[in-house]
């Protein structure tokens, strides 16, 4: 078949809402876009383990500790699902990790903010995982099969993450005045960085057009952000806390809230490496990878030795 025919088959599949599978023909730019998006997503899961891992040894109860451990382990698992999904496109995991460790690849800007108090663990589960779910529910119907299937599993697991976060926020918000202040402080610091998770406004999003055209994404950044605000405000009100946005107001006409845009200058600054924790996160990732080197070497040597024994 000629390239044109391949392209027609590809377009026809998208038009019929059919999935593209690893061995199917696909345009180079579609492949590149997916490798970039899926690997960034994987990196975000892995780097996302760090701000929460920060509190495992200081969790306020044994229950809180096992829950947090399970959650952080899930994030690691999600990273692994996504790396293998990216690998079906022909890039090795070692290359993807190399890009992360050298700072060449990006990950979600949100993980470059610090988790200063226990309330931050509540806010991260509730808001950050909540925003991630909103994005990932959409991605369950993304056009690339392995990515969509990874998303289905991830979404099933994420629901626990968000609920455990909100539970922490409930305990604090209905606790002492000091605890409630802690919850409000966490909300104040995480609200706008969470809004940034959906990406730049549609008018300034360089990758959105192709992503929508190829059905990699099904909704725009602004649509998802609006839905997140609409859904979350009621949860804030229940806690008796205040959204740190004086412009937040119900708009009856659009049946949704009007709200302030996050600071996009700050967003660009964090993305380009200058957030509060970028250096720390990258250093921790590199150190963890280095610390695991002997395990990989030993496992490899053991497998080789055993294969030789069997052959002999």
């Amino acid at each position: 078949m000629e390239n044109k025919q391949f392209e027609d088959v590809f377009e026809a599949k998208l038009a019929k809402n059919e999935m593209i599978e690893p061995k199917d023909w696909m345009p180079d730019n579609y492949r590149k876009h997916l490798i970039r998006q899926i690997s960034q997503h994987a990196h975000s899961e892995i780097v996302g383990m760090l701000p929460e891992g920060n509190w495992i040894t200081r969790a306020p109860s044994l229950r809180a500790k096992v829950v947090l451990l399970a959650k952080v382990q899930d994030e690691g698992g999600h990273g692994l699902y996504l790396y293998t999904a990216a690998e079906t496109l022909g890039t090795g995991r070692d290359e993807l990790l190399e890009a992360l460790h050298t700072g060449k690849a990006k990950y979600s800007s949100i993980f470059n903010y610090p988790t200063l108090t226990w309330a931050d663990i509540g806010a991260v589960g509730w808001l950050v995982d909540g925003a991630a779910i909103m994005n990932q529910v959409m991605l369950q119907r993304t056009s690339y099969g392995p990515y969509a299937r990874a998303m289905v599993r991830i979404c099933k697991e994420e629901s626990f993450h968000q609920r455990q976060g909100y539970e922490i926020m409930c305990h604090l918000s209905f606790g002492t005045a000091e605890q409630k202040a802690m919850a409000q402080d966490a909300l104040n610091r995480w609200w706008f960085p969470t809004m940034m998770m959906f990406g730049p406004p549609d008018s300034e999003s360089p990758n959105s057009e192709n992503a929508l055209k190829w059905r990699i994404k099904r909704e725009s950044n602004d649509q998802l952000r609006q839905r997140f605000v609409n859904q979350t405000v009621q949860q804030v009100e229940y806690l008796g806390l205040t959204v740190p946005d004086p412009k937040l107001k119900w708009n009856e006409e659009k049946k949704g809230y009007d709200f302030s845009e996050p600071n996009w200058v700050e967003f660009k600054n964090v993305i380009s490496g200058n957030g509060p924790c970028n250096k720390e996160r990258l250093a921790a990732r590199n150190q963890a990878h280095k610390n695991g080197e002997w395990v990989r070497a030993a496992a490899q040597a053991f497998a080789k030795k055993r294969a030789q024994k069997i052959a002999a």
Binding site: Y81, T84, R93, R149, R153, A299, Q300, F302, A303, R306
Partner: peptide, 12 residues
């Protein structure tokens, strides 16, 4: 089929 993973041998 549910996905894939990396490992050095069968047990792993």
């Amino acid at each position: 089929h549910c996905g894939s993973l990396h490992a050095f041998d069968k047990e792993m």
